[in-house]
């Protein structure tokens, strides 16, 4: 009997320990606020583009979480997304002219909906709509604007061809865009290495509408965005002569390898990191020595 009782006690202890561990995981290592299903009220918003916003993404006011995204649907027949926000009941005082914006937390973080208060005295009603929204900023578009990236022009009204020699074309591919002042004016027609040469000869097909390009223009291989595709940028020179079919661009600048750039950045940055971790770094050999 005592034997049986010890089994029962041990098993009971085991089960209690299991549930204690579960309670520990659920309360200490997760945000209870993330899953709190307290009373909340829905508010509708419409966005031109929700980007990577996901259901259950947080809704924040001044950076403080006040609710979550309940549903994301497409408005029927429109190129518009209807996002239903579920906001906690103790935040009832959101002005009805507030602006809902989709933000990204950090460069690569998740997206969330931020609400900036308007000046209206009337709070938004339950099931009401926030009319003023700003869509998600697509990282590609932002970087595109920043770096003058974009895509090749869709249709070309006849082209003429010029060539340029590059020592390194990086990840440039046939069909990549050719741009001047950030505007796509043509595409890369072919990339070959001529026999006996160590340089890549890139043939550019440029739209005939852009025929007035000085013949001393420089061509450079750029990258659109952090991980975007590469394109050829033309920087106009000052020559009165214009580029003709079959001309060669003499001034070229090869591709900057993103790896090199980031490598430089990281290598320059890392010594300070090492200093921060210096105390712990010193501890390792000590411990090894003791063993």
């Amino acid at each position: 009997m005592t034997q049986r009782r010890s089994y029962a006690v041990g098993t009971g202890l085991f089960i209690v320990l299991g549930f204690a561990a579960l309670a520990y995981l659920a309360t200490q290592t997760t945000s209870v606020a993330n899953s709190r299903q307290g009373s909340s009220y829905p508010v509708e918003t419409r966005f031109a583009n929700v980007g990577q916003l996901k259901v259950r993404a947080p809704v924040k006011i001044a950076g403080v979480r006040v609710g979550s995204v309940q549903a994301i649907d497409l408005v029927p027949g429109k190129e518009e997304a209807k996002v239903t926000l579920s906001i906690d009941d103790n935040h009832k005082d959101i002005p009805d002219d507030s602006v809902a914006t989709i933000y990204t937390s950090g460069l690569l973080g998740d997206q969330y909906v931020g609400i900036q208060f308007g000046r209206s005295k009337n709070p938004v009603k339950e099931g009401g709509e926030l009319g003023l929204t700003r869509p998600a900023q697509q990282l590609e578009e932002m970087l595109g604007k920043f770096f003058g990236g974009g895509s090749a022009p869709d249709h070309l009204g006849g082209t003429f061809h010029v060539t340029g020699n590059f020592t390194n074309i990086g990840g440039l591919q046939v069909g990549a865009a050719v741009k001047m002042a950030g505007v796509p004016i043509g595409s890369v027609d072919s990339i070959v290495i001529k026999p006996g040469s160590s340089e890549a000869t890139v043939t550019l097909a440029i739209d005939k509408r852009y025929s007035q390009i000085p013949d001393d223009s420089a061509a450079a291989v750029f990258t659109s965005g952090l991980i975007g595709s590469q394109y050829v940028a033309l920087q106009p020179g000052g020559s009165p002569e214009y580029l003709q079919e079959g001309d060669e661009l003499v001034l070229t600048q090869s591709a900057m390898q993103l790896e090199d750039l980031i490598g430089k950045f990281l290598v320059n940055g890392s010594p300070s990191n090492n200093k921060n971790g210096g105390a712990s770094g010193d501890a390792k050999p000590d411990n090894a020595g003791k063993k």
């Binding site: 579960l22 659920a26 200490q28 290592t29 997760t30 945000s31 209870v32 993330n34 259950r56």
Partner: peptide, 14 residues
């Protein structure tokens, strides 16, 4: 802890 609690979801992860 705060990074962990922000990322771990009761439903999906636990």
């Amino acid at each position: 802890w705060s990074n962990m609690t922000a990322a771990v979801d009761v439903h999906k992860d636990i």
